[in-house]
Design a protein around this nucleic acid. Structure first.
Lengths: 133, 133
DNA sequence: ACTATATATGAACATGTATTCATATATTAT
DNA sequence: ATAATATATGAATACATGTTCATATATAGT
């Protein structure tokens, strides 16, 4: 006997009722999961990440975005279309120039939170708890 | 003579210096963009979104996760491996059972921020700006 | 040792996606 | 009208990705 706390078992016949129900209670529905996946998917490509980050500095036209990223206008336009479709960026047309900008603060928050994650792998808990001011 | 605010032009010869430099200043480097894209990519699949959301309720073993999601153990294990590799989930081994849980609060924040986005498409600006109450 | 259980992993296939190319639309100037 | 500029978009191709199947590893019980 090495342990006195018998680990709950996961036999096929009697799966943890409680555990599974706890999971089901917390789990989002399929449609929400799909929508969420789409939003995160919009940020799941290096080009789009760079597009978003470029727009952190303020609105930019397609041409300048293409220049800054070193990509073709077409490729940038395609990506902007995706970002637009998910309300991550908005556009403003002035003459024949179209200026893109981040749609709302959400996007910036999402982005910065992702940055935090890759920088502070798991330090954030301490920071959040200590800071707390 | 139609407007008195001439829109800045994006001619090939003289791209906006300022605009492009503004973009370049705000833009993350390629490596960071790739890492970020990977993290967001981990949340860009409905199955993984549901996995994460299931774990919001607390740690769960692979078997129960598979049961809750209605997926094969193999599929779940593959996805958990991805999430693990990006430090989005952690695992705890107890006997032959492996319990997974969200790695830190970051993940939960990221997730909830995504949820907020798909629920409040662009209301956040009004809320933040007006804030009259 | 052997058997059963819990999870992990490699290969394969099927689907999704990002870029390029060519072309279309929209706006401005002549 | 035509020409030039700025952006958008459809089709095609090349690459990435998720699931399934079969198999491997790890642990517990006999």
């Amino acid at each position: 006997m090495t342990k006195n706390t018998p680990p709950p078992r996961c036999t096929d016949n009697h799966i943890h009722r409680e555990a599974v129900e706890q999971a089901l209670a917390a789990m989002v529905d399929g449609w929400t999961a799909t929508r969420l996946a789409q939003v995160f998917g919009a940020l799941s490509d290096p080009s789009r990440v760079r597009l978003i980050s470029a727009l952190l500095g303020g609105e930019l036209c397609v041409h300048d975005l293409a220049a800054a990223l070193g990509m073709s206008h077409s490729a940038v336009s395609h990506q902007l279309r995706l970002l637009r479709s998910l309300n991550l960026v908005r556009y403003r047309k002035e003459g024949r120039v179209v200026y893109y900008s981040l749609d709302d603060e959400h996007v910036e928050h999402l982005f910065r939170m992702g940055l935090d994650h890759i920088r502070h792998p798991e330090k954030i808990i301490e920071e959040a708890n200590n800071h707390h001011g």
